[in-house]
């Protein structure tokens, strides 16, 4: 027996264990159509969320949550124009300073100064899933596909998984009390179908498959993009050495993770649990010691 308060996966008997599956979300080819959001809601019968107008680009969903299991992020970025850019100068000022071409046109295309980043976010299905580790009822469990799923008939709404998740994925459904998140379409997987979001994605930005194969494919894709002059291209979550032992759903990003609202170095805090309990034991001993100290010298 291992003396540690942290474990990565519950083993299944070989005849029940299936290859680990996941998502490779290649954000470089996401067109922001939100078909994934719609397909997910339809298939999983996820209630409508409070859909207002956010003003944050085309994103009115805003974040993953109990009623949002796929979330498409929209980021509008200025990119360097290759022009002299001093604080306070604008294109108009630059034009006035004689930077326009002889024909009166800008020497760069208008769209070269701007780019969209779009990315469909989802539960990461961590190798070391904090939500699953801290769940006191065993409602959260690891499936034979290596994914992390909430058993809604067991969940009693204690809410511990919610601040435990380093990605802010799982949340409580207010009128229902229980915690909800992406199941990676567990029902469809058992019928050898791909998850609804992956099937609905028209550009194959969301790719479903066996994790090993997806990781190899993603490595090739990131090399291709870097070669094509996209130095910001990077894989997020694919590294089994990261703080959650690698994620089952990983991403190809074109900018730093925090730009997309993702934590740059997420950690399964259960990794520190043994140490935290040791500290607590010491603190408990000091409580006893303090009480004894108060006893000594106090008169009857």
């Amino acid at each position: 027996m291992q003396l540690t308060l942290h474990r990565s996966a519950a083993p299944y008997p070989p005849e029940r264990q299936r290859p680990r599956v996941g998502f490779f979300t290649d954000t470089s080819i996401c067109i922001g159509c939100k078909a994934c959001e719609v397909a997910c809601k339809e298939w999983n019968n996820v209630p409508a969320d409070d859909c207002g107008f956010s003003g944050d680009s085309y994103d009115n969903t805003l974040a993953l949550g109990a009623d949002t299991w796929r979330h498409v992020a929209f980021i509008e970025q200025r990119r360097p124009l290759g022009l002299r850019e001093e604080p306070g100068t604008s294109l108009v000022q630059e034009a006035a300073a004689g930077q326009l071409g002889a024909d009166g046109e800008l020497p760069v295309h208008e769209d070269a100064g701007f780019r969209w980043l779009m990315s469909s976010d989802v539960c990461k299905h961590c190798t070391e899933a904090a939500c699953l580790e801290v769940c006191p009822t065993g409602s959260l469990f690891r499936t034979e596909f290596g994914t992390v799923v909430v058993q809604e008939d067991v969940c009693n709404g204690c809410g511990y998984c919610i601040p435990a998740c380093p990605f802010g994925v799982i949340d409580q459904r207010k009128d229902d009390g229980r915690a909800w998140k992406c199941t990676l379409c567990y029902d469809r997987l058992r019928d050898d179908m791909e998850p609804a979001c992956a099937q609905a994605c028209p550009t194959k930005s969301i790719q479903f498959g066996e994790l090993e194969e997806l990781r190899a494919r993603a490595e090739r894709r990131v090399e291709q993009l870097r070669g094509a002059g996209e130095p910001g291209a990077q894989l997020y979550g694919a590294d089994p050495q990261n703080g959650v032992g690698g994620t089952g759903a990983f991403f190809l990003l074109l900018d730093e993770p925090e730009t997309y609202g993702l934590p740059p170095d997420p950690v399964d805090t259960t990794r520190d649990l043994t140490e935290i309990w040791q500290t607590a034991a010491l603190a408990g001993a000091m409580l006893v010691a303090g009480s004894v100290l108060a006893l000594i010298g106090s008169r009857r």
Binding site: A63, G159, C165, F167
Partner: peptide, 10 residues
């Protein structure tokens, strides 16, 4: 991401 929190509040 638009000043939004990364993790969820308890």
């Amino acid at each position: 991401y638009y000043g939004r929190s990364v993790i969820k509040e308890p």
